[in-house]
Design a protein around this nucleic acid. Sequence first.
DNA 1: TGTATTGTGTACTACATACTACACAGTAAG
DNA 2: CTTACTGTGTAGTATGTAGTACACAATACA
Lengths: 117, 117
Amino acid sequence: MNGFGTFIRDRREELRREDASFSLRKVAERLGIEPSYLSKVEREEVAPPSERTIVNLAEILDQDPDVLLALAGKVSSELVEIIRKRPRLFGEVLRELREAPDQAVLRVVREVRDGEW
Amino acid sequence: MNGFGTFIRDRREELRREDASFSLRKVAERLGIEPSYLSKVEREEVAPPSERTIVNLAEILDQDPDVLLALAGKVSSELVEIIRKRPRLFGEVLRELREAPDQAVLRVVREVRDGEW
DNA sequence: TGTATTGTGTACTACATACTACACAGTAAG
DNA sequence: CTTACTGTGTAGTATGTAGTACACAATACA
């Protein structure tokens, strides 16, 4: 199970091969956090950082923020807010679609988007 | 904006009119928490309790747990888990359906459920 | 060979979360 | 009247979250 720290370390080192400014220290500086802290995060010595920091990291590493948040065991506060406004509706939606294959879900979502409701 | 505390106090007192065992102290005991704490929660002197306690409270007050969690600004860890497993898919789903009316969303969910995928 | 940069170890901190423990005054019931 | 039960005030706690500050040894650069 590829953890959050391992994932971002691998991704950072991948980018670093082509751009030396992806050193741990430089990335930490861009994030506005201490290098020692980022080091511990990457080695999973501490829990993943805050949502804000994860989202900034996603930007820097050119990754999907929802994916990084998921690896950190979190869900974007934007999505939480959507559910929070209609909890019964989206509770049912998520539980019903839990096991459905991606394609079926996407097809149907696009029907609603393009639909005449 | 009807807060979490106000909502559960009103609901508890409503039930109490027909059943004296819905006193604050009795309910606190059933929940396994201190009465003084429940008192503060109901008067919104402190933040809403943990997910576990909210879910137990939903059971006792015969309310939808997702709705109580939403009032507390939270989302069930069960739903978080569903999103966490396919963050891009469900991120797109929620953002696409954010503004759609309930009926349109439900129609679509039922199509997937009854569909032959 | 210096010096600049790298990642990491140790120690500490501020704030939030989720409560407990107990005393107290008011109300209700027998 | 007194005993039981009610809700609430005060004070304190354990654990988690999200980091900082600084020193250090190893490596890379000029």
